[in-house]
Design a protein around this nucleic acid. Structure first.
Lengths: 157, 157
DNA sequence: GGCATAGATACGAACTGGACGCAACAACGA
DNA sequence: TCGTTGTTGCGTCCAGTTCGTATCTATGCC
């Protein structure tokens, strides 16, 4: 098949990442290829377990611990990030799609919020405490509009 | 730290909570008494494990799972709340001392911030998404002043 | 006080999310 | 093709928390 491989040309992002891995002394393995294709392919954040299932539907022998290790490695290279959206497992997504999260404690619904949405909090924290807020790593919890209305803003779960 | 639990006379807050428990069909047991006295006594947030150690220094036979169950119950009654300050175990403290947290991802240092500190974020979330932010349950992560300076605001761990 | 009973406890096992050690395997440069 | 060394599969272990269960006990009633 005639895939264009010219340097500087736009290429398969999976192969680009694998190349980056090689540049860092890593290797391009099947499990990494499949994992990356899953990460690049689909939309929503997924847990390691969910990613493992997707990967295993293509390459059944890939072990969960391999998924963890590769997610780790990809995060170290800055390709992906993980977020904690409340209780439960971490979720992973491309670092290029970075944003904060608002997560409902009642219905577990998630909404994404651009980083600039946190600007005022970020500025205030910097000003008052010298603290540099990272709104991406941990979600901001609370109640979505529907649940707030249903339970009152102080509803008990 | 005005703990208003019962109605009427000013009494030992521990006994007030135990009475509240009784009103809800619960019983006043030794482990609950000791746990409550630990919760009312000391300052910083503590994990279930830490609380268990304190309780066990007074009542050695209290099992960790009892601590968990009682913390659960007390939270259900609104006496205490738990917070997640990043990775690692949850921490518990009196609901009356509620506040948000800024936690450094690099050095794990914690700082407390009054709820009004989150006002602008809270207002913006409400306005834009109808989302009611609860800044107490999950900490806001980032970098404290020292670590931000040391690693640069985008420092990698 | 004695008794019944339902709530609480101690104990241990299970469970979830994740990390780790290691022998076998395989990517890749020579 | 071969050797090196990064990677994998597997099993195991870990922390934090939850659950099942037999036993205990706080409490209301007599």
């Amino acid at each position: 098949m005639a895939t264009k491989v010219g340097s500087g040309a736009r290429r398969d992002p999976v192969e680009e990442v694998l190349e980056l891995l090689r540049e860092h002394g890593g290797r391009a393995t099947t499990s990494r290829r499949v994992l990356l294709s899953c990460l690049f392919e689909k939309g929503p954040h997924r847990t390691a377990e969910e990613l493992a299932q997707e990967v295993q539907s293509i390459a059944p022998d890939v072990h969960l611990s391999t998924i963890y290790r590769n997610l780790d490695e990809l995060e170290r290279l800055g390709i992906i990030v993980h977020s904690h959206l409340g209780h439960g497992p971490a979720t992973y997504h491309l670092a290029s799609e970075t944003h904060g999260h608002l997560v409902c404690e009642a219905c577990a619904g998630e909404m994404e919020a651009p980083e600039e949405f946190f600007r005022e909090l970020t500025d205030a924290a910097q000003l008052r405490f010298g603290f540099v807020v990272d709104p991406r790593h941990f979600a901001v919890l609370g109640r979505c509009a529907q649940c707030a209305e249903r339970t009152g803003t102080l509803g008990v779960d």
